[in-house]
């Protein structure tokens, strides 16, 4: 039962991702991306990481994607944007990126060819995660907080309107 669920979730994640990256409308793409993230959250849950699954839904599919939505709405790309996106997605443009990505995937497969283990699916409780996080990994928490602070400051600075100067040369 669990196994079937896993493969279905995988399939959903993969197809949603593929669709998300090939849409010409940014909002549609974003919806597919959220779907993909939710499917990955299911996989997390099945792997016995309920805490991670919850965070995936809350922060990834929730907070981060909302940011995207805001930005897309602010930019107000419209129909002209969709047409341009479609024009850029000609088969010729697929050639090199497709080749490179395939190459890398093949290599990753080669690298994975020696892993006989079976995932046990034993749950790691949020309590255990919390203990580890504020125990041996407390430094990682500090680093993450600093990183988020930097992101905050950077976003605040970049988001200001008057950063564009009239005297710029273009």
């Amino acid at each position: 039962m669990m196994e079937v669920l896993f493969y279905i979730a995988s399939l959903v994640a993969l197809s949603a991702t593929a669709l998300a990256l090939t849409r010409s409308n940014a909002t549609h793409a974003l919806i597919y991306l959220i779907l993909s993230l939710l499917a990955v959250a299911v996989v997390f849950f099945l792997l016995g990481a309920p805490f991670a699954a919850a965070l995936e839904v809350l922060i990834y599919a929730g907070a981060i994607m909302v940011l995207f939505v805001f930005v897309i709405m602010m930019l107000n790309l419209g129909e002209a944007g969709d047409a341009r996106e479609r024009q850029w997605l000609t088969p010729r443009n697929w050639l090199v990126p497709g080749f490179m990505a395939t190459l890398l995937f093949i290599e990753l497969m080669l690298a994975l060819s020696h892993t006989p283990d079976i995932v046990s699916g034993v749950a790691v409780e949020p309590k255990a995660v919390g203990l580890a996080l504020f125990g041996p990994y407390v430094l990682a928490v500090e680093i993450a907080s600093m990183l988020l602070l930097a992101g905050l400051v950077g976003a605040y600075h970049l988001g200001r309107r008057f950063i564009v100067r009239e005297s710029e040369d273009d």
Binding site: V96, M100, A101, L103, L104, E107, L108, L110, A111
Partner: peptide, 19 residues
Amino acid sequence: ATTMVFGLVLLTVVMLRNA
């Protein structure tokens, strides 16, 4: 991005050979 991927591919090849 493409060149970085190219480098990544090369590095992976090296890693695989070493492994």
